[in-house]
Simulated scan of single mutants.
Amino acid sequence: MIKFERKKLIIDFLKEKGISYNEVLSEKLNIPMSTLRRDLNDLLKEGLINKMHGGVEYNDSSLVMEDFFESKINNNIDEKILIAKKAIKLIKKNESIFIDSGSNGFYVCKFLPKDLNLKIVTNSIYNVLELMKQGHQKVYLLGGKFKPVTGAIIGYEAIQSLANYSFDKAFIGINAIDEQFNLYTTNSEHAQVKIEIIKCSKQTYGLADSSKFNKKSFYLFAREDKVNLIRK
């Protein structure tokens, strides 16, 4: 079997299964492990798969995958600043607000005036550091599981602690918005936190730069009637 045929077999198998261990691929497709590793390296360079520990997954380019926070804050900066300033105009003095993890939320923290005297809750260590840098005094960080990729606090403890809050306004991050304006995030743990935020907020706003639109991600957490979008 020539390389092209092997690679097509691998991709067709992964399209159906999504994820597979290397040993399973080798056995099911009858490809020696040494040959399979070379083919997988080629497919990785071509952007058709993602490597995991002991296995691979099909890279569906129509799905938005989670990226590192440090990378996201350097994309679409001018647009994110404009969105942040639109969000800030909606905030009144002495309100209680929630600012979600993510690069759009970070820019809200960066430009949020301290003289608004807000009570601010967040699930992002990056947001906390930026808010303290800007001189805000009433800043609260949710407890829970720390996710290094996003700098977010997620999980059962975060959801439980959110149930004790009532926010005037919440500003949540969105990874993808499809043509029907359904809102997505990259995993169920982030989604459950966002769902709880919407429940305990009088008004919820979604922060979405142009890179988010006409795409999907792994988990649908809200439809357009639940969240007011702030965009460029």
Rank of each mutant, 00 (worst) to 15 (best):
A170R: 03
A191G: 10
I197S: 07
I97V: 14
N30C: 03
S124R: 01
S20H: 04
K93F: 06
D178I: 01
G143R: 07
K7L: 03
E157H: 12
A191Q: 02
V149D: 00
Q203E: 15
G47N: 10
A208V: 11
G151P: 03
E5K: 14
S26T: 10
V227F: 09
F106Y: 15
A152E: 15
S62D: 11
M65Q: 12
Q160Y: 13
A158K: 01
L131H: 08
K199S: 10
K3N: 09
F213L: 05
S26M: 08
L48P: 01
I11T: 07
L9H: 07
D12K: 14
T186N: 03
F167Y: 04
S124G: 12
I11E: 02
I91E: 00
T185F: 03
S96P: 01
K85D: 00
K212P: 03
F218W: 01
D78E: 15
N74E: 15
K202G: 01
Y165W: 15
Q137C: 02
S210V: 08
T150W: 02
I198P: 06
L162Q: 04
L131V: 09
K93M: 07
R38F: 11
I154H: 02
Y58A: 04
A191V: 01
Y205G: 04
K215R: 15
Q203G: 05
M52G: 07
I125P: 00
F4P: 00
F98M: 05
Y21P: 01
F221A: 00
I19H: 10
R223I: 10
S103F: 05
K3D: 12
A170N: 02
G105F: 09
G151Q: 04
I125N: 02
T204A: 06
G55N: 08
Y205S: 01
I77T: 14
F106G: 00
K212V: 06
V149E: 07
L141E: 03
